[in-house]
Amino acid sequence: MNYGAFTNDSLTMMYEGIRGALAADDALKAQGEEPRFRVRHTPDWKKHAADLEVEMLRRGMTFDIIDWSEDQATLPF
């Protein structure tokens, strides 16, 4: 995808869409249901997010990085 062709607002919207899909999947999983978007199980989601991050950083945009560790064990310290 040619991320350079998108506006800053478009990049932000796509990135936040990934964050929203991830949150929805996590909420469904917590309820014992199947994830709807399968964000954690589909590598292309992470690649899309990483590509967006590269472009946003290149432009000097400020954004909160998606925390992919929510599904992993937490260290005890």
Rank of each mutant, 00 (worst) to 15 (best):
F6T: 13
K47Q: 02
R59H: 08
V54I: 07
V54D: 09
M13N: 15
E34W: 05
W45F: 01
E55Q: 08
Q31M: 07
E55S: 02
L57Q: 11
G32E: 01
A23R: 06
M14A: 14
V54F: 08
H41E: 06
D26R: 09
D64M: 09
R58E: 09
L22G: 02
E34H: 01
L28E: 03
S10V: 15
D51A: 06
M14D: 14
I65H: 14
F37M: 04
H48I: 02
F63S: 08
L11R: 13
Q72M: 12
T42P: 00
A73F: 10
A5S: 15
D67P: 10
I66H: 08
S10K: 15
W68P: 10
L28T: 00
R59A: 06
W45E: 01
F6D: 15
Y15C: 11
I18Q: 02
D71C: 07
T12A: 15
I65Q: 15
D71S: 11
E16I: 12
F37T: 04
F63I: 08
A5H: 13
Y3Q: 14
D64K: 10
T7Q: 15
A27P: 12
A73W: 10
A27K: 06
A49K: 03
E16C: 11
G60S: 05
M61V: 06
P43S: 01
N8E: 15
P76Y: 10
P35N: 01
A27D: 11
T74C: 08
A49N: 03
T42E: 01
D64V: 10
S69H: 07
D51W: 09
A23T: 05
K29A: 10
F63V: 05
L52F: 04
F63C: 08
L28S: 00
F77Y: 11
D44K: 00
G60W: 02
Q31L: 09
D25R: 08
D9Y: 14
M1S: 15
A24C: 08
P35T: 03
W45T: 06
G17S: 13
Y15D: 11
M56S: 05
T12W: 13
G17P: 12
R36C: 00
L22T: 06
D71L: 11
G20T: 13
P35K: 04
R19H: 11
T74R: 11
W45A: 03
Y15K: 10
G17T: 14
E16G: 11
S69Y: 03
V54C: 06
L75K: 11
F77T: 05
W45N: 00
A24Y: 08
E53T: 08
D51E: 09
H41Y: 02
H41A: 00
L75T: 12
E70N: 11
G17Y: 14
I18Y: 05
E33H: 03
D67C: 09
A30P: 02
I18L: 03
G20Y: 12
A73C: 04
R38A: 02
K46V: 07
D25L: 06
L22A: 04
N8V: 14
E33F: 07
D26W: 04
A23M: 03
F6K: 15
E34Y: 06
A73Y: 10
E34T: 03
I18H: 05
D26K: 07
E34G: 01
D26H: 09
R38I: 00
E70P: 10
V39N: 01
R40L: 02
A5T: 13
L57Y: 09
V54K: 09
R36H: 04
L52P: 00
K46F: 04
G32N: 03
L75E: 13
D71Y: 09
F37S: 05
N2I: 12
